[in-house]
Simulated scan of single mutants.
Amino acid sequence: MAIDFGTCFTTAAVRVEQAGTAASGVVVTAVEIENSRYLPSLVCLDDDGRLLTGRAAVQLAAQRPERAESHPKRALLRQSAVLLDGGEVATAELAAAVLARAADEARAQRGGTEPVRTVLTHPADWSPGDLDRLVEAARLAGLDAPELLPEPVAAARFHAAEVQAEGDGPIAVYDLGGGTVDTAVLRREGSGFRAVAVAGDPDFGGRDLDQALFELLRDRALDLDPEPWQRLWGDRTPASAHQRSQLARELTLAKESLSSTGTVYLAVPGYPEPFVVQGGEYRAAVTPALTASIVLLERTVARAGLTPAELGAVVLCGAASRTPPVADLVAARLGRIPDLAADPKAAVALGALTDPPAPAGVDTGADAGEEAAQDAVSADGSRRWTVAHYPDEVDPELWF
């Protein structure tokens, strides 16, 4: 079982080895939770003090935002507890609620069977202390001694298994999630990958793109008539809280729609007509921040001692990677068209359980497999890939 605990959404996958059956082989599938591959990471406290996840949490949070933590992944890194409805709740417990829900659904997909192996993915730049917090949350969720895998590594595995047209050259990964951006360059060696360079920004992600769209809408509303906008955001009643929550959801949908359409319409309570946002003005608003994140990718490639022309592929993944103009900016700065997974968010969870094909002519016997599996075992029993915080380069003997 693999779980990709995200800032905004969490995904899970299961791997089943069907030896000795008519359909023998390895099958990796995404886990559906409430008919979706994407479980909202939001957690909300109910009337009985229980932590809700999924649709129930989203519905209650719209009415009682003071009981909700929208981004428990960020909270886990920044503080030990948050205030929900006036009381302290440990952030590890919030993260554990999400992990436990994903794990329960994964087990249910396999008839209640316990997994023989559990993998948790994480941003490549997380420090050992950050990983300690994730392992503690996993322990509270009943997931002892998990394997920890950097998200770009999982994405590279998935890409290598799905697309082989580029050959066996190094793979650069740009992973733009809801709250973070990760970059990595991985080289194919033996039956696995070696991380050549990794870097990330824990303070930039899809939420910031939502904020840019929000600011466009806010400025337009204030120019037209400031009173309804100020009333909407100043009123503390449950009705206004619900309206703000609904508008936030519509902003996220509008951002996603702008990847395929040139215009979106946004209705704001208190205004008689919807506001029109053009794709061009949205792209202009987000381009400076996106460019900075793609410069990070460019520098990561340079740290790996490579030029973009030497890469076998540039892979985009993460929930926000479809955002215009990500692909265009990558192509402009690196001089090559990137590959976007059909399901860029689920690619990380699926890739965490995927065995990439070995390069041509490479022995994939027992020795190669054992070498590719080398990692470190921490005092808490978790298996971790040794990736330093914001490194220029990782251990050249490190394999994934």
Rank of each mutant, 00 (worst) to 15 (best):
Pro357Ile: 03
Asp392His: 13
Ala358Asp: 09
Ala358Val: 06
Pro356Val: 06
Glu397Trp: 04
Val377Phe: 00
Gly351Trp: 00
Trp399Ala: 14
Ala358Thr: 08
Gly351Thr: 04
Leu398Met: 08
Ser382Gln: 04
Gly361Val: 06
Val362Tyr: 06
Arg383Tyr: 04
Leu350Val: 11
Val387Arg: 00
Ser378Arg: 13
Asp375Ser: 15
Leu350Arg: 03
Val362Ala: 09
Arg383Lys: 03
Ala366Lys: 03
Gly361Tyr: 06
Glu371Phe: 10
Val348Asp: 05
Gly365Ser: 07
Gly369Arg: 09
Val394Asp: 12
Tyr390Ala: 14
Ala376Ile: 14
Asp363Glu: 11
Val348Gly: 04
Asp395Gly: 10
Pro356His: 02
Glu393Thr: 15
Ala366Thr: 15
Val387Ser: 10
Ala366Met: 07
Leu350Pro: 01
Pro356Trp: 02
Gly351Tyr: 01
His389Leu: 03
Glu371Leu: 11
Ala346Lys: 00
His389Asp: 14
Ala373Tyr: 01
Trp399Phe: 11
Ala366Asp: 15
Ala346Val: 08
His389Gly: 05
Leu398Arg: 08
Asp367Lys: 07
Ala368Glu: 10
Trp399Pro: 05
Asp367Phe: 11
Leu398Gln: 09
Ser378Lys: 06
Asp392Ala: 13
Ala376Phe: 12
Val362Asp: 11
Leu398His: 11
Val387Trp: 10
Ala360Asn: 11
Ala358Met: 00
Pro356Ile: 02
Asp375Pro: 06
Ser378Glu: 15
Gln374Tyr: 07
Ala379Phe: 07
Pro391Ala: 04
Thr354Ser: 04
Lys345Ala: 15
Arg383Ala: 07
Ser382Cys: 01
Arg384Cys: 04
His389Trp: 08
Pro356Arg: 00
Gly351Ala: 02
Ala360Pro: 00
Pro359Ser: 09
Ala366Pro: 09
Trp385Cys: 14
Pro356Asn: 02
Ala346Ile: 04
Asp395Gln: 02
Leu350Thr: 12
Thr364His: 12
Ala352Gly: 06
Ala360Ser: 15
Val394Pro: 12
Ser382Thr: 05
Ala366His: 10
Ala379Met: 05
Ala358Ser: 13
Leu350Ile: 05
Gly381Thr: 09
Asp355Ser: 13
Ala376Gln: 12
Ala388Phe: 05
Val348Glu: 07
Thr386Asn: 13
Val348Leu: 01
Trp399Arg: 14
Asp375Val: 13
Ala379Arg: 08
Asp355Ile: 08
Gly361Ser: 09
Thr354Val: 07
Thr386Leu: 14
Ala349Arg: 01
Asp363Ala: 11
Gly365Phe: 00
Asp355Gly: 07
Gly381Pro: 03
Asp392Gln: 09
Gly365Pro: 01
Pro357Ala: 06
Pro396Ala: 08
Val394Ala: 09
Glu393Ile: 12
Ala349Phe: 03
Ala349His: 05
Glu393Ala: 15
Val377Trp: 00
Thr364Lys: 03
Ala379Val: 13
Ala346Gln: 07
Ala379Thr: 13
Ala376Cys: 06
Val377Tyr: 02
Ser378Phe: 10
Val394Gly: 12
Trp385Leu: 13
Gly365Gln: 03
Lys345Asp: 14
Gly365Leu: 00
His389Asn: 10
Ala368Asn: 05
Tyr390Trp: 10
Pro357Arg: 01
Asp367Thr: 13
Ala366Asn: 08
Ala372Cys: 08
Ser378Ile: 09
Ala347Ser: 10
Val387Asp: 11
Glu371Asn: 10
Asp363Ser: 06
Glu371Arg: 09
Trp399Leu: 08
